[in-house]
Nucleic acid binder design. Structure first.
Length: 185
DNA sequence: CGCCTTTGACCCGCGC
DNA sequence: GCGCGGGTCAAAGGCG
């Protein structure tokens, strides 16, 4: 699959299905939540509920550095099609595994996953995202920097990248524009 | 009525 | 071998 990475694809397709349809074109079902030691904020675990056999998992946790933001980590590949066209572009972006930011409390507390996911490849600092099979886990990328590097640190380093900041701002902005009631601080 | 969210407990793996 | 942490499963409740 070709990597069609485009932030503008943050098209928040408000699928009129129910309300559990996330903007990335997939339905996610929460199956657990846990507070980790590294980050006092609870980490939520989601699975793709569109296909029972879909191995994709998603972890969402508030960014320790700035709790207004959420960090989403995708694990695995969807073995089925997305729900809508936007899902396809995201599907290619999310295909292997990646971490992304979700805009702050732009919606109801527990509906946060209904926001947008920003592909980190846009940061320009980690263009090599989709390898054949070696680095399916995001941690693989962190290893390139430091074995001890944690997600939060990785994220922090990314924010120092002006390209990433720009991409993040763009994504957040587009999400605001798209959301019914923006509540960004 | 069906699906999703929430919470607690249990299990597995890793490090000391 | 023990302890700690992370991740997953299962049951109950709530909402659409």
């Amino acid at each position: 699959m070709d990597a069609h990475v485009d932030t503008s694809t943050t098209t928040t397709t408000t699928t009129p299905t129910t309300q559990k349809v996330v903007k990335d074109g997939y339905q996610w079902r929460k199956y657990g939540q846990k507070v980790t030691k590294d980050n006092p904020s609870p980490r939520a675990y989601f699975r793709c509920s569109m296909a029972p056999s879909c191995p994709v998992k998603k972890k969402v946790q508030r960014w320790m550095e700035d709790k207004r933001y959420l960090v989403a980590t995708y694990d695995g590949e969807h073995n089925h099609d997305a729900d809508c066209s936007i899902g396809r572009s995201f599907a290619s972006a999310n295909s292997s595994s990646m971490a992304g930011f979700l805009s702050p409390e732009t919606s109801n507390t527990s509906r946060f996953q209904s926001n947008i996911a920003l592909d980190l490849t846009l940061s320009g600092s980690s263009q090599e995202k989709k390898r054949p099979s070696s680095s399916r886990d995001p941690m693989e990328d962190y290893d390139h920097h430091n074995k001890k590097m944690k997600i939060e640190e990785y994220v922090a380093s990314l924010t120092k990248d002006p390209n990433f900041t720009t991409a993040l701002a763009a994504a957040v902005a587009s999400s605001i524009t798209d959301l019914p009631k923006p509540t960004i601080l």
